[in-house]
Design a binder for these strands. Structure first.
Lengths: 182, 182
DNA sequence: GTCTATAAAGGGATAGAC
DNA sequence: GTCTATCCCTTTATAGAC
């Protein structure tokens, strides 16, 4: 997908990466522009020199969050799909050690403007492409199979984060891991 | 789950069913107490005679929305699990003809208080219980299998609603249907 | 039990100094 | 390009009349 881990040390990049972290972990509506700017070491007034609206930042933050989550996951995986799945469907992901925007923001996206929704759609398609690419067996994966894996991964983490029963969450994530690897 | 279709004609019930519809379709933060009360034919001030906070209403609305979605689905299913799945993973559901709170509010729940999260958790467990109960083959379903079906159903609709590519949404829902029936 | 009126707080966006 | 100050609107929650 063309991302790099290094962050350009510009204010704009600081704002985007701050937003990526705060929006995914706390939700778009629960984070004020002021929170993002404080986290980036700036103040409110400077925001509109970089973005025309909070929504425009949202779209950029989704892409940034996806890159960060992908980097975090792949770094620890040895580039094996089974490892990627293990890390993705882990309690650490549920607890927010890293944050896939596809799973953390899923039901927040529907209300937003088309720029945000298109961005989410594009990131989802990239996620599914990655499942194809990392598939070990060297043989092409059925599109339906890749989609099922994606839904079990993204949906599994999204639901696991919603519930407040840790023991049940473990069983749920375990069932999803089994399903994705089948 | 003990629900009935008839609505008691009290203000309280009107408020709850209004909230069930508005919260699921538009999201909790995007609906003001004023909107709920208007929809129920009342004004703001009357709200606090029924509930101590907006969050308390949220928990009740989730239960109400689950009952409504279950009624809608089962009425059209002939009580067959395959039909239930077909209806649940349909474009009509994605478009909001009915609204399962588990799928429409998934990532909104994590931020809320324990009362809301416990309610969501309870409704999810009831959903999984229903998969066991409606399983045709008369033989007990593996818990992991039931959870995988639930995640494909709930996650599938949640993701399908987020994306703004109708054609891709059809393929995604189709892949989920295939996966749940496997 | 429902109404109008209002308090109190928060947040998106803009203006203008530096 | 960043700052402080402010406008303006929305929202939750409360007070008090009927």
């Amino acid at each position: 997908m063309g991302w790099t881990i290094e962050q350009k040390n510009t204010s704009r990049e600081k704002i985007i990466s701050s937003a990526a972290e705060l929006f995914t972990k706390q939700g778009f509506d629960n984070v004020a522009i002021n929170d993002v700017m404080k986290h980036a070491g700036l103040t409110r007034g400077a925001f509109y020199n970089h973005f025309t609206s909070k929504s425009e930042l949202y779209a950029e933050a989704i892409v940034s969050a996806a890159h960060l989550a992908k980097a975090h996951t792949i770094e620890r995986s040895g580039f094996k799909l089974a490892d990627i799945i293990e890390i993705y469907l882990s309690d650490k992901h549920r607890q927010g050690e890293f944050s896939c925007p596809l799973a953390f923001l899923t039901t927040d996206i529907h209300q937003r403007d088309n720029n945000v929704r298109s961005t989410y759609t594009r990131v989802l398609k990239g996620f599914i492409d990655n499942i194809h690419e990392f598939n070990e067996h060297g043989m092409a994966l059925n599109e339906n199979e890749a989609i099922k894996k994606a839904v079990l991964m993204i949906g599994g983490i999204a639901i696991a984060r919603a519930i407040n029963d840790d023991e049940f969450s473990e069983r749920l994530l375990n069932a999803c891991r089994e399903g994705v690897n089948a």
